[in-house]
């Protein structure tokens, strides 16, 4: 069953008044619980595609269907709500809130959903234990290593049980051992919780472990 599908997705940027076509008509469909890696060289349009799939940016042309519903016409407010309820994000630079502890970072998106404090706390602690990072609960990002921060970022991304997690180069800032552990963790979440993962990466190790690989070149998918 499809979770997300694009139709002739195009994105044109203006670079000093010169139009640059970042995506040239992408057609793809990703099924629920899939683990997909979008690979390609720098500038191929991986991040642009991820931003469009994550409802962070609007396409110049084309449509994106999430569970068969087109979200390209939604307002900014509706898109925020959509992201909050359906999506999880993992960033290359972890991007945890520096003034909040690991536990609070994880709780934050639940707070946005209006989940009561007690339940937030319990669910966050359970997830920290599941990810074997419960000892980080009271630490702030500045007190954690890159790998630890990214594990907390994974926890933050999945704590609301999203249908789709988008990860933009999640292992790029990590050494290969830590990156490998992180991939193990996300594969486990994919298998156990049936969360759909879409990665963008040009890391060979990530590409090798992909269950489904999409190769992007010059704004076009060249290999499924």
């Amino acid at each position: 069953m499809e979770i997300i599908r694009t139709e002739n997705l195009k994105k044109v940027y203006q670079d000093n008044g010169v139009p640059v076509e970042a995506l040239k008509g992408i057609n793809l469909a990703i099924n629920r619980a899939e683990h997909v890696v979008i690979a390609g060289p720098s500038g191929s349009g991986k991040t642009t595609l991820l931003n469009l799939l994550g409802a962070l940016d609007k396409p110049t042309r084309g449509k994106i269907f999430f569970e068969e519903k087109d979200f390209s016409g939604k307002t900014k407010k509706e898109l925020s709500e959509f992201r909050l309820k359906n999506l999880g994000f993992i960033f290359q630079a972890y991007n945890l809130i520096p003034v909040l502890t690991a536990l609070e970072n994880i709780e934050f998106s639940m707070m946005l959903l209006g989940i009561p404090e007690k339940e937030r706390h319990e669910r966050s602690m359970k997830l920290l234990e599941e990810l074997e990072i419960e000892d980080l609960a009271d630490k702030r990002p500045g007190e954690m290593s890159g790998g630890q921060q990214q594990r907390v970022a994974v926890a933050r991304a999945i704590v609301n049980n999203p249908k789709l997690v988008l990860a933009d180069e999640p292992t790029a800032n990590l050494d290969s051992k830590t990156g490998g552990k992180l991939l193990d963790l996300m594969e486990r979440m994919n298998a156990d919780k049936k969360i759909t993962f879409i990665f963008s990466s040009h890391d060979q190790k990530v590409i090798e472990r992909a269950k489904r690989l999409l190769i992007l070149e010059d704004g076009q998918i060249v290999s499924h």
Partner: peptide, 16 residues
């Protein structure tokens, strides 16, 4: 700025 971008991405609405 970077942090506001993250907050918006994870679904924090403008009013919050």
């Amino acid at each position: 700025i970077n942090e506001f971008g993250v907050l918006m991405s994870i679904g924090m609405k403008n009013n919050k």
